[in-house]
Amino acid sequence: MIPFDYQPAENAEGAVATVARAPEATFLGGGTNLVDHMKLGLARPSLLVDVTTLPLDRIETLPDGGVRIGAGVRNSDAAAHPTIRERYPALAEALLSGASGQLRNLATTGGNLLQRTRCVYFQDVTTPCNKREPGSGCSALGGYTRYHAILGASSDCVAVHPSDMAVAMAALDAVVQVTGPGGQRDIPVVDLHRLPGDQPHRDTVLSHGDLITAVDLPPAPASRHSRYRKVRDRASYAFALVSVAAALDIEDGDVRAARVAFGGVSHKPWRARRAEDVLVEGPPTESTFWDAAEAELSDAEPLRGNEFKVPLARNTLVSVLREIVSEQR
């Protein structure tokens, strides 16, 4: 780790201006990913601007009935918040399935979205990695792929995004509020993260100096009937092999709205629009669930060593949908 300067932020605009000015500066949130990366030599900032000092630690109800979660809200506080639990149970479940109690007390909403892949090669500076060092090659291809992508990968990168929270947010149509050098803007969570393509070093569409200030959750009846299911190698405290966030709005025996996203399968939280299309406007039957999973996963391209993720994703989705329906009966 190289020496760095530390500055507590006084206001969002000032923090953005400071970081935007200095190419080697970055924001510090809960630190649970950044400090990790600085120790491993993956991140080498010369200036940290601490944004946990900003008043971004509130959860508020919006005029339209949605909810705004400040970027500085700790994962544990978001998961424990009565409004989140009641209106967006999948989000609370996703938050609670991430990391550990101690880490959730540190990790922030903004930091969780921006955490980087846990690909073992990305995290090891002694192995080539296009995400860490563009052009050096992808070591995961032909290597250890258990935690790697089956959807949307490229020949340059097969890493997955590790967040649970972001998967639920993607399914729930959450929108990220960003303050950047050029002002404020909104980015739907589904558009925040990128597929790797030939630029795997770029995880998101954000530019240097962009600061996430909040995440807005829209009001939606289906959200109340949402679930998050995480399948992993340990019963707890492990990253997802596959996870599913799903919400169904069922009226008069038919699915009126469906929202589905997968985690652990792609470089970004994978919104499963094709599966949603199959589910909508029909009765929620077992065979529809299988069809929906099939529709989404027919293009899956597993790697040697993670073929099991295709049936796992399929089965997990069906299992979650089954559960949601049985709860609504």
């Binding site: 846990r118 073992v120 190698d233 340990r234 019963a235 707890s236 405290y237 492990a238 990253f239």
Partner: peptide, 11 residues
């Protein structure tokens, strides 16, 4: 310890 899993309490 994130990748070499030893049993956690929940296991």
């Amino acid at each position: 310890f994130a990748e070499y899993h030893v049993a956690a309490n929940a296991d």
